[in-house]
Design a protein around this nucleic acid. Structure first.
Lengths: 342, 342
DNA sequence: TTGAAAGCGCTAACAT
DNA sequence: ATGTTAGCGCTTTCAA
């Protein structure tokens, strides 16, 4: 099969500025200036250039431009797992805002794996991305070597133990509100089903929960579920123990699903016998029976805010110190957290 | 705040091969050869080079490498919407396989918008990506101009009307199986709730459904729901009509959720009064009441297969003509499609 | 306003 | 085995 190639120019090879220049009868400098709308250029010449460019099907070589300009139009977005609906939404927010500002985004999933995380960071520097948006695996993720690259970083969702621009939702407040809501519904033994504490958000939620139960002199019931696990074992054990919880706060939607299916298996009807509320809303939450009460994080907006901070840094318009944007969570009361059938 | 910079080298600027060469007391060629494991190089010199590189914190400039090699390590993945769990899974498959083969992926969401799609295609050529994986908005998406770029393309999920490497699940067969399953359960008036026909998969599913109802001499009940709509209006109208369906086949999970919530509103209990089966499995499908019967597409595997085809093309190992990989769908019978309470 | 030419950082052909 | 150097395609001084 013959390889298609644009008219004129070197056969089988992409068209270059030089080809356009030749076709338009001008110098490469004029072509560059025209196509970039930089400096003054005679309207007539400009027209000839544009005409030649479209005629030849010229597409600028971004790699060469980037090398020359010492700059790229690409961001890296490194997150734990795009399959988690929360991160999916964050990614959309980032992507939409990036796109609008003329950037593209390289996506990396770390799967809570430190090696993968470092590998993606490596790619980010090598590709000389214009900026990085990172949701670190752990509060202690190593970015020391990355600092020297001069690439601006915005941390999302999970905080680092070093100061960076940072966007997240108020996990602590959300957990406090959720726990208090459970108590207001009449539950007396709420438990918090959470993730390993190296994830900053999970830890904040546990702390928020703890604050409330302590203040009320209630027992501290915490179940820690590894990532990529829905928590069946943990809840089964908790329920079988001497002091089973009467209600549950889960820190992500996967855990909520895990609890729903576990409680069904344990024949503990939700709302009737055990209250349930979870972080993160999703399309199915209002549809299931009983509808799931949730604390919503503005995930899309978190992504957008991160993008905006990054743009500020890239343009050098941002203030010197690290900036923080803590977005509010919202409590959406549906049926699962209520106390019915008693 | 002073900008951190690595020891030695030009202050405040990234370390280059030349800096490493100088520090190691060798030529740039030797540095390049060492770091790329190409050609023979004296072990002692190699050691000095590696030492200097790590000492200076050298990170290769991928942009320069790409320009020189006329090649990149990046793919573009252009899909309708990463928020759709099906595409999320495809993206993970692509990303994992890409990563393993040493590529990174640039993500673009088109939102079924032709302009955005063309814009991302433009970015892909400009960045001279090594390959493109595309789920086109429409069977007629214009790729004529893209062909000349020489960038290999693999089409996923939705077929194009022109021949390209293509990976999808057998939508037609899946729809046939689902519809037959509905009939086997005793339902007599299955309807197909689908998407606009320019999306090739939706069209295949409608056709599969049609084949079965025609063969059985049953009425053809089709509701077409625009993208980004859950179908409440369509189902309400269908149910209020003279010939309401007694069961539903939906072509994606968002539609399934739409039907579930619509049927609740219409007080038509699922399974008891109307059967439901949907394309695409999800984490919530087995958990809801009644558990949702589904036709599963191997979404992750579709992504992986697309990546493999792409790698074959890039390496020039693939056969000349376009290749097709049609992966099987699987029927998972749960409760929603059964006929209970009658 | 336009053009000539340097040079971004790297690899690879060529010379040693 | 090692070094020298051209050149990838572009932008941007600088000179005309």
């Amino acid at each position: 099969m013959k390889r298609a190639s644009p008219p004129s120019g070197r056969p089988g090879r992409p068209v270059r500025v030089a080809d356009v220049a030749e076709a338009a009868g001008v110098s490469v400098a004029t072509v560059s200036r025209t196509l970039n709308n930089k400096g003054r250029v005679d309207p007539e010449l400009a027209a000839r250039v544009r005409d030649a460019a479209t005629r030849l099907g010229y597409r600028i070589n971004g790699v060469a431009r980037n090398l020359r300009r010492q700059d790229t139009q690409v961001w890296a977005l490194i997150i734990p797992d795009i399959n988690n609906p929360f991160y999916t939404a964050v990614a959309r927010g980032v992507e939409d805002a990036a796109q609008e500002a003329g950037y593209s985004v390289l996506l990396g999933n770390t799967d809570e794996d430190e090696a993968k995380e470092q590998q993606y960071l490596e790619v980010a520097v090598q590709e000389r991305v214009a900026g990085l948006i990172l949701s670190p695996r752990s509060t202690t993720t190593d970015l020391s070597w990355f600092g020297g690259s001069g690439i601006p970083i915005v941390v999302v969702d999970r905080e680092l133990d070093r100061p960076f621009d940072f966007v997240t939702a108020s996990s602590y407040d959300g957990a406090v509100a959720a726990t208090e809501h459970l108590l207001a519904q009449g539950w007396r033994r709420p438990a918090c089903i959470t993730r390993p504490s190296y994830a900053a958000t999970a830890e904040q939620r546990r702390l928020g929960y703890l604050e409330v139960v302590r203040r009320h002199g209630l027992p501290e019931l915490v179940g820690v579920v590894p990532f990529h696990d829905s928590g069946l074992d943990v809840i089964t054990e908790l329920m079988a123990g001497d002091h089973p919880p009467d209600s549950l706060l889960t820190v992500d939607s996967m855990l909520a699903l895990g609890m729903i299916s576990a409680l069904k298996q344990l024949r503990k009807p939700i709302a009737a016998e055990v209250g349930l509320i979870s972080f993160d809303d999703s399309a199915w939450a209002p549809v299931i029976e009983p509808p799931l009460s949730v604390i919503v994080q503005p995930a899309y907006e978190i992504g957008v805010a991160a993008a905006q901070l990054l743009i500020g840094r890239i343009r050098g318009e941002a203030p010197d110190g690290p900036q923080r944007r803590i977005l509010d969570t919202t409590l959406i009361v549906r049926k699962s957290s209520g106390r019915s059938g008693r």
